[in-house]
Design a protein around this nucleic acid. Structure first.
Lengths: 187, 187
DNA sequence: CTAATTTATTGATTTTTATCAATAGCTATT
DNA sequence: AATAGCTATTGATAAAAATCAATAAATTAG
């Protein structure tokens, strides 16, 4: 079993046969900057694991583009709401740069669950991670000023600041572009 | 198999043996108003299913009591962050009134996963539900004024307004008590 | 390489909601 | 029923950040 991927690092309980099964069902995909992995209005089909590059998830509301998350290499991403509910997604996912990823379709994943029950645990753990990130983001924002939120992002995910535009970061941190611009000017 | 519970309604795929196993591991618990089900600083031990009554989950920050969710009858609740990570919870859960619930400990749940792999799917679905609620709450708040948030709560979960105090509702809707009071005065 | 377009900065003003403060209304307990 | 202790309302003011507006800088395309 190759170890170059890192994709199984968090799932040591998977049997070799499950890993092999998984690998044979993964599809390697490459993207150019700005490619759309998932589109609003469509049911999210894939769960992605980023090998290289980065992406952002966003949605539109009142003609605004709101970034809800950033994905860096070594991380999983999908339009989770749609992936879970099998209803059309309100989310888009686009790459911020040339990227490489593995992906697995929802259907294939369900087959994996039937054939290798342990894989359901791996998925559960991805889901748990998703949940934790969302909850922590919510609580972290609650008592912080715009500037504190920006400083925390700088501290904990500096890569995001390098890769995303002011507009993306501002909406992600729930502030206007102007406010973020002023914060950057004074720190 | 009795059907009075409703607890299995969402998990039709569970085998009878899994259901029986589950039931024998469920503990029935009763609470008075204000009882603490889960305490901050301690690792969350139980997943609860409310048969009757209601509860709220809250945490303290800067000497403020912030309500993060309400649980009504027929719903599951735990301090999910701690339940997942097995780290001390920052969350408390208290009943808003006399209540009855079933609960299952984390350890027992893990045993269930080993003995009846299908139960892992049921837990996954609870987790998915938790995720969806959190995500929807986040997005719903984003573009709404204080008044709109209150009106939506009235529309979708009117029971909460009957059972919780202004202070609980205000922090849940992310506004001050005074703001909520003014909203109630003018609608 | 230059024009066009998008993205970012800076300033002035407004808006929403928080905070501070005082009072009023409930609830519970003796 | 009276008192104490919360809980809720209402008013005045302040603060944080949004919005509107005008440039400036940086990217992209021709």
């Amino acid at each position: 079993m190759e170890k170059i991927l890192g994709i199984f690092d968090k799932f040591p309980f998977l049997s070799d046969s499950a890993k092999t099964g998984f690998l044979s069902n993964l599809e390697k995909v490459e993207f150019n900057k700005g490619d759309l992995l998932e589109k609003e209005g469509e049911v999210s089909q894939y769960l992605y694991y980023f090998l290289e590059g980065s992406a952002r998830s966003f949605y539109n509301r009142n003609n605004r583009d709101i970034t809800v998350s950033f994905t860096l290499d070594g991380e999983f991403v999908t339009a989770m709401h749609s992936f879970i509910t099998r209803k059309p997604s309100y989310e888009n996912i686009e790459t911020l740069e040339k990227s490489k990823a593995y992906r697995i379709s929802h259907d294939t994943l369900e087959n994996m669950f039937e054939n290798f029950p342990e894989t359901e645990r791996a998925y559960r753990m991805i889901l748990e991670e998703y949940y934790i990130v969302l909850e922590e983001k919510q609580i972290f924002s609650k008592f912080k000023t715009a500037q504190e939120r920006y400083l925390e992002l700088m501290e904990y995910r500096p890569k995001v600041i390098q890769k995303a535009s002011v507009g993306h970061i501002a909406s992600y941190l729930d502030m206007s572009i102007e406010t973020l611009s002023r914060i950057r000017a004074r720190i």
